[in-house]
Design a protein around this nucleic acid. Structure first.
Length: 949
DNA sequence: GGCCGAACGTA
DNA sequence: GTACGTTCGGCCC
């Protein structure tokens, strides 16, 4: 028989507050306060010492609070409202807690919307159900409710106790009774009566611990005490109990621990091995914890030392995992075996799978459909995975198109979805998707609001954006992730459905093949989640994942479903006008050329211009072709070449017609009559969204002709469109991040920022100097180079360099920002936004100077562009709740264009909605990152997108 | 049918 | 000089 398993659950968040208040202030060699971190480290040290003792841990995890809001705020909005912000010198220690945990190679769990207490309760219950003993490392009184809860599992009795490491005291049932006067199962009733000022649990006014205990002892429960109140002798206590009975009941709910939370990491993955000494030593050294370092002594280099990279296993693409990324290795799983999958074709089997998924509290899922376009796709089936080799496919729309072939047996679609709905919508079951936004949209169209959801594609992005090396892709698609992390080659869509003309819809794929493909996707998603989720906390990506990108998934999904109305007739009219003009120009161009040719071919055009017509200044690029881009043609036009002028006009009109007026008409969804773009959450390495099919982030605005296309984006009758833009957000962020007093001042005063720059640079402001200043400001954001700036301004490189020097002289913070950013990217391999979003630059140390310089420019830009992306994403996440709280439930958020949000709303709501939108956007960095510049938001409204600007 | 480079639309 | 996506012609298979 296996030895008894013993799980330790460390209440990390509560611990550091206690450690902070109990220990003297202490700073590390870099001057960062680390007193609480030191206390936390010694606590982990003590636990690690017990590792191989008889009653020591066999499994261990640290549990942290991930976010300020939880389900308790939905029940009682004042919950934890009185809690003061943490002291300034404690704040920087929070992220270090994760570093410390990582240094011990221990798993660290946190989950948005859940408090550490609830996760601890859920893990404790799950472990005792399996017959494991549990020790909760905490002294939190709420958690005392759990003590003693025994189960009779396979291994006999399993119990929960607590360990207060500060007092070095075990807390078991007698200790709980000593503290509360009642056994653990009644602690919740006592807590409900006495309330808690720190958490702002109301309780009953005038009742403290003493009276609460007495009442519960006498009556046996909260409800009994409340029921007995009218018969008590008249007193203040009696009146309070009667008057505030509801408050007590509410408090009872608030102190109740949630034991059925989805478990983001499986219990088996908390298995403890040995603590590898190297990362620990590095951590102790970095923070100057010399006494501990000494005690670690010659543990370094011992035979237990673990090797980071096992060549037999698949290797993460990009930079090899470096010091600090080690952890207790996850137990190995059997290889993927597609023969184990089940095709679910009848209701009882389906019901059994749903029941098992409910019990597992974690299920990977995937939908199969007829199209890549979620707004047009027909549902063909759903796959579920509960573990390795434990996956199924539920066909729902197979067959039926061929009248002569027999339709395979399947559970009827509506019936199956009705059965699946409680699972997919259950708060207690974590659903894991790969690009879950797609599946959310498919299921939303069938009336199912899936949640809570984790997304492995988004996790991969938050961990590894930009991390690709020669020969190894850096993408976040399922096939690529499976190859990179699991060493597994998945069946591809092409393998199953073919490609090109011979593509068959998924609903026509035979069920055995469909099952292999679909269930494999779900199992791969399950396995990826198991690998990636723990990496989030280990690699400092939790904040950006939990607070920004994860909650954004359903928000963006909803925007895609909303779509935007376009005026087809208006587009058709423009298209016809453009076509006429294009034909006219074509005739003139062929006339001027002396022969017909394909104007759209740069190759042919170049030959006509420079070979046949003999214009000078033809430059051939690396492909041996003449360049005929806008700059060249404008120069020729200035030199009097009429043909160049006509070609420029022809190009503008052709572009507008083919890319916009024609393509947008084709993109109108016949069912909704609207255009639904698809946003990629992992499209831009910096963290921006990207938009495809169609791209609604590059609708023209700069020229009058192009602007007419924006007029075709319109509101429904009775509604208007509202466009809200951040003004100069990247420059504002640069001013903040590089700490440039002159620029910050200008933004604070609402000055014209380019004019201010012109004044600083040239001593006077006029059209010319302001324009040059504007160019320089942008050049800074894009990673400046003398040649680039020179080219833009039309001055020699040395003159441009002089301007750059002058800029640095006037705004010294900028030079320092560039220098320190590059320094840090070279040292760590990645840049970081103010919110901790990483962007990797594997070529920053390339031997190729061009490549290296390119990476450097991108690395200077990424924190600024990425922080701006983080901020608007945070605004998007908060927007609908804020509007709803203001009673503005008819406002719909339709589009995001990097620094702009577009809404559709009833005209009457404009004043109220403008206020909310402005406030949410302007405050979106707070409270995580207080900015030293205000964020300006400009709002316009109109019947069309064009008019709203 | 699939891929690449040139050109050009946006922030 | 940053970050994207789409269209087109030209070329490959």
């Amino acid at each position: 028989m296996e030895p008894k398993q013993h799980l330790y659950l460390v209440d990390g968040s509560a611990y550091i507050f206690r450690a902070y208040h109990r220990l003297p202030p202490l700073t590390n060699p870099q001057g960062v306060p680390v007193g609480a971190v030191y206390g936390y480290t010694t606590m982990l040290w003590k636990l690690a010492d017990d590792l191989h003792k008889a009653d020591g841990p066999t499994h261990l995890a640290v549990i942290l609070d991930a976010s300020g809001k939880s389900f308790r705020n939905d029940i009682y909005d004042q919950y934890k409202a009185n809690r003061p912000p943490p002291p300034e010198d404690l704040k920087p220690q929070f992220p270090l807690i994760r570093d410390a945990t990582r240094a011990f190679s221990l798993p660290c769990i946190e989950e948005q919307g859940l408090e550490a207490d609830d996760l601890i309760a859920s893990y404790a219950r799950a472990a005792t159900e399996r017959g494991w003993d549990v020790t909760i490392v905490s002294s939190d009184k709420d958690l005392m409710q759990l003590v003693g809860k025994c189960k009779h599992g396979e291994d006999g009795e399993a119990c929960i106790d607590m360990l207060d490491t500060m007092k070095n005291q075990r807390i078991d049932v007698p200790e709980v009774i000593e503290k509360f006067g009642v056994p653990p199962e009644l602690v919740g009733d006592v807590l409900a009566l006495m309330g808690d000022s720190v958490d702002n649990v109301p309780g009953i006014r005038g009742i403290g611990p003493k009276t609460a205990t007495k009442l519960i002892q006498e009556h046996g429960s909260l409800e009994a005490a409340l029921a007995a109140a009218p018969d008590m002798k008249p007193s203040k206590l009696r009146d309070s109990l009667i008057e505030q009975a509801e408050m007590a009941r509410l408090s009872r709910v608030l102190v109740q621990l949630k034991e059925d939370c989805p478990l983001p990491v499986a219990l088996d993955d908390f298995k403890l091995d040995t603590i590898p000494p190297d990362p620990l030593a590095a951590f102790l050294e970095e923070h100057g914890f010399n006494s501990l370092l000494k005690r670690l002594g010659d543990g370094r280099g011992s035979p237990e030392r673990r090797v980071d990279l096992n060549p037999a296993k698949p290797v993460t693409a990009g930079a090899a995992p470096t010091a600090g990324s080690s952890r207790q290795p996850l137990p190995e799983l059997p290889p993927i075996d597609r023969s184990k999958y089940v095709c679910v074709q009848d209701e009882p089997t389906l019901a059994a799978w749903i029941e098992r998924a409910m019990a597992a509290r974690l299920v990977a899922f995937d939908t199969e459909t007829s199209s890549i376009d979620a707004m047009r796709a027909e549902l063909a089936g759903i796959s579920l995975a509960l573990g390795p080799g434990d996956a199924c496919y539920i066909p729902l729309g197979h067959g039926g198109t061929d009248m002569f072939a027999e339709r395979p047996a399947q559970v009827e679609k509506t019936r199956a979805l009705a059965l699946l709905r409680p699972l997919l919508e259950s708060e207690a079951v974590l659903k894991i998707g790969q690009n879950a936004k797609y599946d959310l949209n498919i299921l939303a169209r069938h009336g199912i609001d899936v949640g809570p959801v984790d997304d492995t594609m988004v996790m991969s992005f938050d961990l590894d954006a930009g991390r690709s090396m020669d020969g190894i892709g850096g993408g976040h698609g399922m096939d690529e992730l499976a190859a990179r992390h699991l060493g597994h080659t998945t069946l591809t869509f092409k393998d199953i459905c073919g490609s090109g003309k011979k593509t068959i819809p998924f609903g026509e794929v035979p069920l055995d093949r469909a099952t292999e493909y679909a269930a494999e996707d779900a199992e791969v998603t399950w396995r990826l989640h198991r690998l990636l989720k723990p990496r989030l906390s280990e690699e400092g990506a939790t904040r950006v994942y939990e607070r920004v990108d994860r909650p954004l998934v359903p928000v963006v999904a909803q925007m895609e479903r909303h779509g935007i109305r376009v005026d087809r007739d208006k587009l058709a009219g423009l298209s016809a006008t453009f076509a006429e003009e294009i034909a006219k120009l074509e005739g003139q161009i062929h006339e001027l050329a002396g022969q017909p040719f394909t104007i759209g071919s740069p190759k042919q055009l170049g030959e006509i211009l420079f070979d046949k017509l003999g214009f000078k200044g033809g430059k051939k690029g690396k492909t041996g072709q003449y360049s005929t881009d806008q700059g060249i043609l404008e120069r020729l036009s200035g030199e009097g070449a009429a043909i160049a002028d006509r070609v420029l006009e022809w190009r503008q009109l052709s572009k507008l017609r083919s890319t916009y007026t024609e393509a947008l008409q084709a993109a109108i969804n016949p069912e909704t009559g609207r255009v639904h773009t698809s946003y990629s959450l992992v499209g831009a390495q910096t963290g921006r969204l990207s938009s495809t099919e169609p791209n609604l982030q590059n609708i023209p605005i700069r020229t009058e002709l192009g602007r007419q296309i924006r007029e075709a984006f319109v509101a429904e009758p009775g509604n208007v469109l509202l466009a809200a833009d951040y003004s100069q957000i990247e420059l504002r962020l640069a001013a903040h991040m590089a700490d440039v007093p002159a620029l910050k001042e200008a933004f604070a005063e609402g000055e014209d920022i380019h004019a201010r720059t012109a004044m600083e640079m040239f001593g006077e402001v006029n059209r010319d100097t302001r324009g040059r200043a504007k160019t320089i400001n942008f050049a800074i954001l894009y990673g400046i180079s003398r040649w680039g700036l020179g080219g833009r301004l039309g001055v020699p490189a040395d003159e441009a360099q002089a301007m750059i020097d002058r800029y640095f002289e006037r705004f010294p913070g900028i030079r320092h920002y560039i220098h320190s950013t590059l320094e840090s990217v070279r040292a760590n391999g990645y840049s970081e936004t103010l919110f901790g979003r990483k962007c990797w630059f594997p070529r920053i140390s390339s031997n190729n100077p061009n490549e290296r310089a390119g990476s450097e420019r991108a690395a200077i830009n990424a924190p600024i562009q990425g922080t701006s992306a983080d901020i608007i994403k945070r605004a998007m996440v908060r927007m609908m709740p804020a509007l709803e709280a203001a009673g503005l439930s008819h406002v719909r958020m339709l589009l995001q264009v990097h620094d702009e949000l577009v809404f559709e709303l009833p005209e009457a709501d404009v004043p109220a909605a403008s206020k909310v939108i402005e406030a949410v956007m302007a405050g979106a960095a707070e409270p995580a990152v207080p900015l030293s510049v205000p964020l300006g938001v400009e709002i316009g409204t109109g019947l069309s997108w064009g008019a709203a600007h």
